[in-house]
Design a binder for these strands. Sequence first.
DNA 1: CATCGCTTGTTAAAAATTTCACAAAAGAAC
DNA 2: GTTCTTTTGTGAAATTTTTAACAAGCGATG
Lengths: 212, 212
Amino acid sequence: MKSEHIPKATIGRLTVYVEVLERLKREGSEVVSSESLAEACSVNPSQIRKDLAYFGEFGVRGVGYYVAKLISAIKQSLGVDRKWNCALVGVGNLGRALLRHRDFQTKGFDIKVAFDCDPYKIGETIEGLEVICTRKTKEKIQELNLEIGIITTPPERAQRAANYLVEAGIKGLICFAPGRIEVPEHIPLEYVDFFDHLFAVAFNITLGQLGK
Amino acid sequence: MKSEHIPKATIGRLTVYVEVLERLKREGSEVVSSESLAEACSVNPSQIRKDLAYFGEFGVRGVGYYVAKLISAIKQSLGVDRKWNCALVGVGNLGRALLRHRDFQTKGFDIKVAFDCDPYKIGETIEGLEVICTRKTKEKIQELNLEIGIITTPPERAQRAANYLVEAGIKGLICFAPGRIEVPEHIPLEYVDFFDHLFAVAFNITLGQLGK
DNA sequence: CATCGCTTGTTAAAAATTTCACAAAAGAAC
DNA sequence: GTTCTTTTGTGAAATTTTTAACAAGCGATG
């Protein structure tokens, strides 16, 4: 098949596949069928085959998928087979936790700068990274060739952070602050919101209790 | 309309509506139309009306929705118009950050216990909460009537944490560890994964660059 | 080297979700 | 109190996404 429009949900599932495949690899599996991978990911086997088909043919008929090969293929398809230089804005609790979170490095997202506008925080060092004044956004983004902005400010400062980053030429944003922000059409933007998921759990519990 | 099956995506959007409505309320709006709310949430106005219709009729024709009323209505519909007692398992960087995160309180999710299996952490106090040994899971869950479990352990310990919580009678789970876990059918489970979203941003940046 | 079993890639069908379009209803204007 | 404007709630249409079904292809077996 290859290309055309790719459902957003597909992207989400591909990252799950990678996660699960990496576990399988650690556990010694060399080959996996769409059926067993589907089982491990709690999805339909056709779904997996279709998701992969958007990007190419990665399997061997009668055999399945070579785990290591498939991991590479998916990562390459998603564009995460390389390093991405990131900037974090907003060094609060969450920002700090993310800076300390090793997986960013591991997964290829290198946080190269941490910005904050609070004079008390500027100059502080976290995980070997000096907190820098937000005024220097443009300078630093361009100097270090940063591509992805991670917004961990309080909600009322999220829009301003986004503006600075976009103006400085950032290519994409991920926003942990609640509420929506505005960015130009061509800048990919994703929101991360735990409460989304907490609400969903609460809702489903409530639903289950009513149903019974 | 009312009831029947509700799309998962609807739940996600409803939480966005609440977020945006609360901002509008703070800014002094008393009434909002589906059109302007849609604008603020970057969705289609019909979508909003349909999402709301699953739960009842909350608007006034020719007028719109009363902001404060709509917030209550949505919260009630989702089952978040009350307190939910939560247990957190895994006091690492992320766990600590969540414990310090004020919004849990604010939004009605009361983290009443923090569990960890590391003897060095047990007894430590974070935000007025003593870290308790995982062995006491069952006892505490039942004693404090905890309903939602928040899993912030490393991935290899997530399944065990889930097992303990489920066995202790937890009603729903939210898992921040990467990888999938298994729980009984009737236990609502949601995963929170930043990398999902980071991958999506990376993918969309890559896509945009190819397209051009 | 033909046959058989298995698993992919893909086309077609089904299901779910979103968008459109408009009748119904509320309030304002006259 | 009738008409006009507005905006909801909803049934029907369009679109998207998921699932099922199966032909095509790979490797093993004899």
